[in-house]
Design a binder for these strands. Structure first.
Lengths: 142, 142
DNA sequence: CTTGACTCTGTAGTTACTACAGACTGTAGC
DNA sequence: GCTACAGTCTGTAGTAACTACAGAGTCAAG
C-alpha cells in the first residue's frame, strides 16, 4: 500500500469508491476530455485531488439528469471559461428538458399499449394472443 | 429497372420504402436472425415477398413498443414455433411494461429537476447559475 | 457505349460505457 | 530474499441497435 500520510492524492480505486463511479468509467471520462489527465506519482500511478473529485461528481450528476457527454462537455466549458454562464446553461437545460419530455411521451404511449395487451392476455389461457395480434396489425402507435 | 410484371418479389429499396424502414436496417435484421435470408434473383439481388414484409412490420412495431431485439426474437419464436404463445407473450410484455414504467419514473425525476432549474435560470441575467450550482451540490436526484 | 441508378459485400463509425489481457509495481508473510 | 497476491498500468474488444460508407458488380435508357 501507498504511504497515505505523505501522498496527498487519491488513487483511482479510492476515487471510484468515494464517488460510486466505476473506475473504468473515470478513465473513459479522462480519454473523452471531460476530466483532465491527473498528475502521476513516482511509480506512474495517477493521483487525484479533491478538485478532481468535485469535477467528477459534477459529471456524474449531469449524467443522472440525462445530459449527454457532449452536453456535459458544454456545461464544463461554461464552468471553466465563461463568466456569465447562466444564459447558455439555461438554454442547454431547457433544450434537454424538451427531449426528456418527448421521451416521456414516447414511453407513455408504449405503456398504454402494453398495459392493454397485458390485461387482455390475462392468464394466457386463450388460444389467440392479443400482443401478437397487435404487432401484426397495421401501424399506429406513434 | 427490373421487369416488374414477371418478377413477383420486391427489391430491398421498395421494401424499405413501403415499410418506412431504412434499407440498411433490413439487412441488419437479416444478419441478426430476425428475418430470414430472402431468396435471390438470377442476378443475385434479394427478392422479398409479402410474408417477409409482414414479418418486418411485426419487428418494426415491436421496436416501436420498445422491445429489445432479443425480446423481438423471443416473440418471433413464439409466433413460429409455439401453438400456445399467449402465456409466454404476456409474461414478456408485462416484464417489459415494468421496465418502461421504471424509465418513465427515471425521466420524470429528471424532468422535475430540470423544470426547476430552467425556471430559476430565467432569462439568464443572474450572475450565479442554478443549474451549475445544482450539479456541484451533493448527490440526491435518484 | 457510356451514364447513372441501383444492388452487392464487408467494414467502420456512433454512444456511453464495461471488461478483459498482459505487463508492472508494491506489500505482507515467511 | 522470495513468493504470493493485490493493485495499477496500457491498449484493445465487446455491448445495443443501428447507420454510413467504400469499392465492385449489374442493369436499363439514351
Amino acid at each position: 500500500m501507498r504511504d497515505r500520510t505523505a501522498a496527498k492524492g487519491l488513487q483511482r480505486a479510492e476515487l471510484a469508491k468515494r464517488t460510486g463511479c466505476n473506475l473504468e468509467t473515470v478513465r473513459y471520462y479522462e480519454k473523452a476530455g471531460l476530466l483532465p489527465e491527473p498528475p502521476r506519482m513516482a511509480n506512474g500511478y495517477r493521483s487525484y485531488d479533491l478538485t478532481y473529485e468535485r469535477r467528477l461528481r459534477f459529471v456524474l450528476r449531469a449524467r443522472e439528469l440525462g445530459f449527454s457527454l457532449d452536453e456535459v462537455r458544454a456545461l464544463l466549458r461554461l464552468v471553466d471559461e465563461h463568466d456569465q454562464p447562466c444564459a447558455e446553461a439555461g438554454r442547454l437545460a431547457s433544450r434537454h428538458l424538451v427531449e426528456v419530455r418527448a421521451k416521456i411521451a414516447d414511453l407513455r404511449r408504449m405503456e398504454r399499449v402494453l398495459k392493454d395487451v397485458v390485461a387482455q392476455c390475462g392468464d394466457g389461457t386463450r388460444s389467440d394472443c392479443p400482443l401478437i395480434e397487435t404487432l401484426f396489425r397495421e401501424r399506429g402507435f406513434r
